[in-house]
């Protein structure tokens, strides 16, 4: 296992060569904002919140999807990055109907946390207020498209860990939606095993356990990484 040495915010860091900037930074105690990334799932670089500056190039890099390199000099926070991140968050809020006060994930929501962390107190863009549906046809879970940020964590958890691939994304651009099977009600899905991994993966209140009311929807994200380790590193002693 080769080791790479790089600088993150002026701090000298050594990392495994297969590590991403995001993981290396976290191990060095630097927490880069991220939304579509979650431990245990393949990064897709969808949300762009983790963009960082790299010395010697003007191009910003998605920390979650960029491997460390020898001698890299990374800046994870600057007025420019802060401004971009805030703008990304505002765009996410403007795109759907995120009303924290009545959301099952209130106080347990990664989108909300990011907004607070970046001091996003208002949105400079026009809200789209799309008319979106809520599907509670599944007997245990529900999906509220009003709160989905299209991070595809549910899609990846279902495909990579459970292996069911019930979820995918249909359409594109502003019409993109996560779907179950042939865009049918979740409860009618033949592939869904009701394992609940998507529920653990979802950063917002989009996928929820039925019966949860406002602010009740807590999740255990570490479960995903735990399952991957258990499988890949054969961590069970049986």
């Amino acid at each position: 296992m080769a080791i790479k040495t790089l600088t993150i915010d002026g701090q000298l860091v050594s990392a495994r060569e297969e590590d991403t900037i995001l993981v290396a930074a976290r191990e060095a105690g630097v927490n880069i904002p991220a939304l579509c990334y979650v431990d245990g799932l393949t990064p897709v670089g969808a949300c762009r919140l983790c963009l960082v500056e790299q010395q010697g190039t003007n191009r910003l890099q998605a920390a979650c999807a960029t491997k460390v390199q020898e001698g890299m000099e990374i800046v994870t926070n600057s007025p420019r990055l802060h401004e971009y991140r805030k703008m990304i968050l505002e765009l996410l809020f403007a795109e759907r109907n995120h009303i924290c006060a009545v959301c099952v994930a209130n106080n347990h929501c990664e989108l909300q946390d990011m907004a607070v962390r970046h001091g996003m107190d208002h949105v400079r863009f026009e809200y789209l207020y799309p008319q979106l549906s809520v599907d509670v046809s599944h007997e245990q879970f529900g999906i509220d498209h009003n709160r989905c940020i299209l991070c595809t964590r549910c899609v990846r958890a279902c495909h990579e860990i459970e292996g069911a691939h019930t979820w995918d994304v249909s359409g594109r651009g502003v019409r993109a939606r996560v779907i179950t099977d042939m865009n049918q009600p979740w409860g009618d899905s033949d592939t869904c095993t009701s394992c609940g991994k998507c529920v653990q993966a979802c950063p917002t209140g989009a996928i929820f356990r039925q019966g949860s009311t406002v602010a009740e929807m807590e999740r255990d994200r570490s479960m995903l990484q735990f399952l991957v380790n258990a499988r890949e590193k054969k961590q069970w002693n049986v």
């Binding site: 019930t166 995918d168 099977d181 042939m182 865009n183």
Partner: peptide
């Protein structure tokens, strides 16, 4: 292929 993938591609 999973149905959701086929639908996803068809609508893309």
């Amino acid at each position: 292929l999973p149905p959701s993938r086929v639908f996803g591609v068809a609508t893309f």
